[in-house]
């Protein structure tokens, strides 16, 4: 049953990826990326990782899709310009993809008790985290206590992103001048924003 669900989600994932490649409409592309993230969330849930699935559904499918759509509303460019094939880029992408596929066979199976990831500190977390931290959810215990420094870094990254957006867009109120220049440059965009 679970492997059937896995298979269905994987097939839909592949369809989404091909559809993203195929479409030239950027709004549709943003929506498809959201669907892709949602399918990934389903796969994470099937792998018994509800915390990751939660984050993927909320951030990947929710907020980042919304941010992409408002960005499209700001730029007013709704269609991808058909470009020529960039051969060196294609080569690098193919090479990376090939190497990743070649490395796939070396990965341990899902849930393998002898894999390096489960032999190190993970064993200590599973056996002692609940009694050491008083928190039954292992993921929270690891993220907030054992890896507290890591999580601090993540929050600083989110804060820095907000700071960057404020510095670039928020504090500067000279919008009309910049917009005029953007319109001159983006004059060949095929559609104007509705908003």
């Amino acid at each position: 049953m679970e492997s059937l669900l896995d298979l269905i989600l994987m097939i839909f994932l592949l369809i989404m990826a091909l559809a993203i490649l195929h479409t030239r409409h950027l709004l549709a592309m943003a929506m498809l990326f959201g669907l892709y993230s949602f399918l990934m969330a389903g796969l994470f849930l099937l792998m018994d990782a509800p915390d990751v699935a939660f984050t993927e559904a909320a951030v990947g499918a929710g907020i980042s899709t919304v941010l992409m759509i408002v960005t499209l509303a700001v730029t007013g460019i709704h269609r991808e310009r058909p470009g020529r094939i960039h051969w060196p880029a294609l080569f690098v992408v193919m090479l990376t993809g090939g190497l990743l596929l070649a490395g796939l066979s070396q990965l341990p199976a899902v849930g393998d008790p002898a894999s390096p990831a489960t032999l190190g500190v993970a064993r200590h977390y599973v056996e002692h985290a609940a009694e050491e931290t008083g928190v039954p959810n292992l993921v929270t215990a690891v993220l907030a206590s054992y890896r507290g420094f890591d999580t601090l870094g993540e929050v600083v990254v989110v804060f820095t992103a907000g700071l960057g957006v404020l510095l670039l867009l928020g504090l500067d109120r000279r919008k009309p001048r910049i917009r005029k220049r953007a319109r001159k440059e983006g004059g060949d965009s095929e559609t104007r924003p509705a908003a």
Binding site: V70, V74, L169, P176, A182
Partner: peptide, 8 residues
């Protein structure tokens, strides 16, 4: 972002 999209 919403501020900007309203002005453009």
């Amino acid at each position: 972002f919403a501020h900007w999209s309203r002005h453009s």
